[in-house]
Structure formats: C-alpha cells, structure tokens
Design a binder for these strands. Structure first.
Lengths: 193, 193, 193, 193
DNA sequence: ACGTAATCGAGACGGTACGTCGGGTCTTAGA
DNA sequence: TCTAAGACCCGACGTACCGTCTCGATTACGT
C-alpha cells in the first residue's frame, strides 16, 4: 500500500513551463507548418530549449502528450444498449473531436514525425493508437457478450476499418468526416443481414 | 496539330543519372531512415545536388515517381465475372506489391513527406492516391452495372475502407496484410445479406 | 574601540569547501584545460555551483587566490649585500616556484582569463602582478640607496624586463627558465660597465 | 621550374568573403570584446558560419591571419649601418604598429585564445611569434657579422627581452610603449661598456 | 567544323535548425 | 543560514542539410 513520493531535492519541475510548451507546440502546428521547430516552440512558450530537451526526446512527443490527454478526456465508451448505438456514439464523438482543423493538423504532423523516427512510432502506438483501439474494442466485446455482434468480421478487422477510414480521410483527402459517414460506417459494421 | 517534341539543343538529360537517383532514393528509404536527404541521395547516386534539383522539386517527388510506375504496372483490374472475385483479386495483387519491406518504407516516407509539404501532397493525391482509387472504383462501377453490388454502402465509402485499412496497417501497426485479410475484407464488402 | 568580529548569525562558511574548491580548480587547470569550468570545479570539489558563485565572482578569481598565496609565501627579498646577488636570488627563487608544470598552467590560464574580463584583470594586477613587481622594486631601491645600481635603466624598465622575460617564456615558448637564464639576466641588469 | 596550380573543379573560394571575415573579426575584437563570437563575426561579415568553419579552425586563427599579414607588411629590418640604429628603428616601427588600441586588443585576444587551445598556440608560434623573432634575430646577426654586438647577452636572450617587454606591457599593464622606452631598451641592449 | 546551349560532377555560398554545453539565477530539502 | 541538488532562461557552440550559385568539362544540335 501507498504511493510514497521520493521527494527529491532541488527545484521542482515547472508546471507552468510544461503547459506553455504543450500549448505552443499545438498552436504552431495548428497554424499549418508555421515554424514548428524546437526553436519555434521555445520562443513562443518563452522557455529555453534545454527545458524542452530535458523532458521530451522529440517534438513529436510533445504533440503526443497533448493529444493523448485530449482524446482520453473527450471520447467515452458508455453502454447505450445496442452495438449499433454504441458504435454510432463512438464515431460521433470521435468525429467531433476531429472537427477543429488544429486537431487534425496536430495528428497529421504526429503521424508524419512518427514515420521518420522508429522510437517515437513505438511510443505513439503504445500511448495513443493502442489506447484508442482498446476503447473501440471495449464496445465490440460488450456486443459479443450481448450476442449483438454480426458474425462476419473479427473484432480486429473492425478496428482496422474504423481507424483506417478515420486516418485515411485525414492524411489522404480533404473530406471531413460527418454524421452521414458515421451512419454508413456503423450501419455496415453493425448490420446483421 | 501534333505531339512533336520541341527538340531542344544542348546536351540531353542523362537517363543513367535519373535511374541512379531513383534507385538511391528508394534504397536509402528502404534502409529505414538511413541518411534519406538530398545530399545523401546525391552521394549514393554519384550525382551532383544540382542534377536532382533540376528535375525534382522535393525528395518526396523522387519516391512518388518510382512508386507510381510500380503500382500502375503491377495491379490490374481485369474482369473476373463477380464483384467478390474482382475485389478479392485486386486486394491480393495489392498486398503482394506491398510485401517487400522497402516498398512499405517508401510509401510511409512518401506519406510523411506529403504531410509536411502541401504542394507535394497535391501531387501525391493526383498522381498516386487518386489513380489507385480510380482503379478500385472501376471494379465497383462494373459491379453496379452488373447489378452485383450490395446496396449498403456508397462506392466512395468502399474506397475509403479499402485504402483506409491498407494505409492504417502500414502506418500504425506492424501487421502485414495477408490472404485472410483480403478474404474478410472482400467478404464484408461484397456480401449481399 | 576593539577588534571584535561582528559574529554573524547562521551557519559559518565552510573552510573545507573553500579548500576543496581551490584545489579542484588548480588541479583541473594543471591537467591542461581539462574541464576547467565552474561546473567542472563544482563536480570535482563535490560542491554546488551556488557555493562557488557566493564567494568568487569568476573562476579566474579562484586561481588568483590560490596563486597569490603561494607566491607571497615562497619568494623572499632578503638582503644579500649586493644588487647582483639579490637579483640573482630573486630570479632563482622565482624560477623554482615556476618549475612545476601545474603552476605554469595555472598562471597562463589566469593571464588568459584576465584578458577576457577587464574587472578580473584589475584584481589580477592589484593582487598579484603589482605585488610581485613591488617585491622586485624593493631590491632595486635597496641597490639605489647602497649606490650599487647601474645608471643605464630606470627601475621601472628593470621590472618590465624581468617580468617580461618570465611571462613571455611561459606564454609564448616552451623553454623553461633555468640558472643560466638567471645568470645572464642578472648579469645584464646589474653590470656596471 | 614549375608551380602549376592544380585547378580544382567547382566554385572557387570567395576572396570577398575572406576579407569580410578578417575585417569583421578584427573590428569586433577592437571594440573590446564586443560580441567576439563566431556568430558575431558571421553576422557582421554577412557570411554563414559554415564558411568560417570551412577555412579556419578557431576564431583565433582568423585574428592570426589578419595580424600576421599586417606585421609582415609594416615592420622592416632594413640595414641602417649600426646595431643601435637598426634596433631602435625596429622598436619604433613595432611600437607604431601597436599604437592603435584595436591592434593591442586583437593581439591580447589572440594570446589569450592561444593559451586555451594548444593547437592554436602552435600555429600562433610558428606563423606569428617565431616570424617576429626571426625579424629581430636578422638584425642581431647582422650586428654580429659587423662586430657591432655587445658580448654580454646571447641573441636568444635579446629576443626574449625585447618581446618580453612588449607583451608584458600589453598584457599586464596599461602603459603604452613610446620613443623613450625604445631608447632605453635599445641603449641597454646595444651599449658596449 | 564550329559555335551555341544545355547538361553533368564538384563544391563553395548564405541560411536555418539542430542538439549540447556552460553561465549565472532561483527554488527546494536537509543539516 | 548555509549546503547540495537540480530546474530554470539564456547565448554560443560546432554540425547537418537546405536550396542556390559558380566552375570546368562534356555532349549534341543547328548552322
């Protein structure tokens, strides 16, 4: 029992700086390629580069931290009695989070950074992609228990399709995801005939 | 009217250099992040930087050129009498092209580069993504004519799902796409009940 | 009236730390430029940077303090009855102090630091260079009183020559100063014809 | 005979940049340590840092190059028929070159840099100190041949004394060297009785 | 065959950002 | 009140690539 903190000596990490850095990074990337460099972040946050390097290995990790927080907070997987409704609700919430262009910019930048740095890619998977996936799979297994799940596709494929469409739309096209998309997708995946 | 080339004077473009550059770029990117820079490509190809800048605006365009050739050549949309079989064949061919790790590396790098350069993104869409999409939509419209198409989803969503799964698997996970995946996906999209 | 020390409150300055710092600084610089930084001194002395900054304005002042002590303690200007002998004795003692390479390293570092910091240069002059000069001028004025001084050069020039040769040899050449040098120099400066 | 230049390929070194860098470095150091950094030199010369690093290993080498040129150009060792006059002329010329505060600043900076970088110290000796020394020794050996040289001191000590006084005055005191100093020094070193 | 023109490798140029080092200040916990 | 630890802002370091600009050396076409 207990979570005794070791209480180290010396000055403590500045929460103010941490927030300033997360915000600056997000804002810069939201402004479409606007000076999104470590130096740019430091300048906008009013912080030294050293302070950034002390806590984050790459600028991608900064985005990762701020995006992971947001997603966790704003997408629930509450039980709505049917697979179709659960799925529809999950998609609607997700698409809402993705509405602001800044969020999409940040996610696209993060995905791009991750492709160029294998270690960041691992962290991105573990701390973001897998968690989002786990959220969805929770809905799927609830349906399975309920006997509500169409037999056609394995749950892993469901996740590949849902997140595949979401990311493909962000990365490869300009088209926003809307309620109609949520309806078609949920319809296809939850339909029994 | 005619397609006469103007036949300019002076020394002609060196096909040897062109090939050396395409190969060097592809190889460097295949070796996972190994010095994939214009200078690196020039050095490995035994070519001057100027020669690269003369013919390609960005290093992403080099990848684009070499990948577009390959895909066009190796994925057919021949008529196999049923939507299910056409789709299945398309997926099998595509997954085969994607088998070599070098190809996947190149595609991931290209997608990453495109996220950071809006003009390259446009060219990437027009010269690669839209063409792949058009190939698939050919199969879908053939099914429509044939009356073979399940009514559940619009053809655009079919494309979003197919390419969504393909890209999501490449960018976000390690899992290769295999025959089983092709079967499930084709099954889901072509099934009538 | 009295000589009562004010007896300030709180923990008193740690003599242990003071010595550790002086030694660490001297040793680091003796090892030819090895990590001779405030951070390096703090690390080797097992002391915090703050403790150094509290008592010395620059790292040059640390060297200054330890070198001034040594010189004062080890070079006498005792009367040996003739200018020639006094001078010869002064030079021999000085050259002996300068024999260990660590001492020369420290002096060269101190001179270099002083060139880059005008305030340190002032302290260096007052607390070291002028005191060494005063020592020598004591010998010269004793000779003057005795009527033993050759008329050719003013006493200031004598000091310029003596310390000039010493410093030039340290800073600009590799050649150690030895007994022969002491002899020639004393001979030149003390000869009457 | 020969002296064929190798005629390398590629763009040639810009003499304009070279001069701008030498001038900028000299001027910055002349303004008493004002922003005397590689970045400062690059900024003032309107040149990239890379161009500096391509041709000079340290900022000391830049000073070295510009000072060596000046000294070589402005101090002659022409024969004036007597050792006393030759020496006196050498000292007068030297003191004249040293009159502007900027020159003294540059020399002091260079000497300081050299103390902190053993490789620069070697180059400083070879390309500056030893050449100045050789100039003087030329005068001394001419006197020797002429039978004009007082027997008291070896020629090496003459050089140690002359350059010792010059450097000591620059580094350790504020006092400028003037005609009177030249007279006393020449008198002492050239006097026969 | 000769000149004009475009290409090629080489490599220097002005820049931007990198990731690191050290300086000097400030904050915390412990002695 | 001092100490060691350690985080903070700042400025410079030396390096890597960027995209551009000469160079001399090859081609090739059109007189």
């Amino acid at each position: 029992m207990s979570g005794e903190e070791p209480r180290r000596r010396g000055r403590r990490r500045s929460e103010e700086s941490r927030q300033a850095i997360l915000t600056a990074a997000f804002d810069l990337v939201a402004e479409e390629g606007q000076d999104f460099t470590i130096e740019g972040i430091a300048a906008r946050a009013g912080v030294s580069k050293q302070t950034i390097y002390r806590w984050w290995p790459t600028k991608g990790d900064i985005l990762l931290e701020s995006l992971a927080e947001q997603a966790e907070a704003r997408i629930s997987t509450s039980d709505r009695d049917s697979y179709l409704q659960d799925l529809r609700h999950f998609l609607d919430q997700t698409f809402t989070v993705l509405r602001p262009p800044g969020v999409r910019s940040a996610l696209r930048s993060l995905m791009a950074e991750a492709q160029q740095n294998p270690e960041l890619l691992l962290r991105f998977r573990e701390e973001f992609l897998e968690r989002r996936r786990a959220s969805l799979l929770q809905i799927v297994s609830r349906a399975e228990v309920r006997g509500d799940l169409p037999p056609r596709v394995r749950s892993e494929l469901v996740a590949d399709i849902v997140f595949g469409v979401i990311w493909y739309r962000m990365l490869a096209t300009d088209r926003l995801l809307d309620g109609a998309d949520a309806g078609s997708l949920a319809g296809l995946l939850a339909s029994h005939e």
